[in-house]
Design a binder for these strands. Structure first.
Lengths: 162, 162
DNA sequence: TCCTATTGGTTGTAAATGTAACTAACAAGA
DNA sequence: TCTTGTTAGTTACATTTACAACCAATAGGA
């Protein structure tokens, strides 16, 4: 079993017959891997924006977005829409509240629930970030044809379970 | 500003005109979000397999896969292929070594490098898991037409930077 | 009413990750 | 040789996440 590994960059593929040649399965074509790498790549550049500008985490940005886009709602409602675990939401809400981006109001008919609502500052952050998000989305999509864009969104939506 | 939040399931969309109507931008069509949700969904079901059967993490499965599929190589080489951070790789390798799935051999021409190679047990795990991966991939893709599959793989590959 | 189950939300703890600092080995010039 | 810089890999620490236990409020009977 020769190794072919010097001190130069080694991609590391053996060619000594030990490799099963009928095996054409590659990580690069494995859908979960592809999705993951694409998501990481696409997510990172946008993350830089909300992290640098507002010191937010992804969970916080999502909660902010939901409240900004769809109006006041309870944490439970956010959970139903995003499938984020309730502990994530709880902590994101706490962080946003600490930074005065939202307020909570106990509901009178069920005191377990809280109405979450953006403050003016929260709304401003949402407006700013959603503008950036839109731009970012457009940039990412620009490299594809309209048909590709359509297929991509539909397939991903289906995979995501929307 | 009415809130429409009773104790039943509330999706939480306000319809009181506060919403900017020209704003048709939705999280569900935001590519990074879509990618993330799809990746999480697709990843979770496969994760169950390698987690339940071998108690592995995703990083460990990836290292195992690389060594199984492409043969012995150094940690550095794995890093170049997967873009995983070297600390992740270091820990994954340590975990796989502890479970006797791989061995390390210092290279004689550069003692900083280690040749990583699967043991028989490691190879067996790889064979088993890659079979499952293939199945899983096929299942996921089965819901799409051949053209869609093609577009999907190409676009994702491009987004991932392959 | 009381009892039990369920629900919305929070908190504690362990596991996983990111970042930076570190060690040891090599490289390249003076 | 010595010095400086770079590289492969590990370790330490802080941040983030997952999971389970928990609390308080409500619901739905007996």
């Amino acid at each position: 079993m020769r190794a072919r590994m010097g001190n130069e960059v080694v991609v590391g593929i053996e060619d000594d017959g030990e490799r099963r040649e009928e095996d054409d399965f590659d990580l690069k074509s494995f859908l979960p891997y592809l999705l993951n790498q694409a998501a990481e790549q696409a997510g990172t550049s946008f993350q830089r924006i909300y992290k640098a500008r507002y010191g937010m985490l992804r969970t916080e940005w999502r909660v902010l977005f939901h409240l900004g886009r769809y109006g006041p709602m309870t944490a439970k409602a956010i959970g139903l829409r995003t499938r984020m675990h309730k502990t994530k939401i709880s902590r994101a809400v706490a962080a946003l509240e600490a930074r005065r981006y939202l307020t909570r109001t106990e509901l009178e008919n069920d005191r377990r629930l809280e109405r979450l609502e953006l403050t003016a500052a929260g709304r401003k952050a949402y407006e700013d970030l959603s503008r950036h998000a839109r731009e970012h989305d457009a940039e990412l999509m620009a490299q594809f044809s309209p048909q590709e864009q359509d297929v991509l969104r539909r397939c991903l939506g289906q995979l995501a379970g929307f």
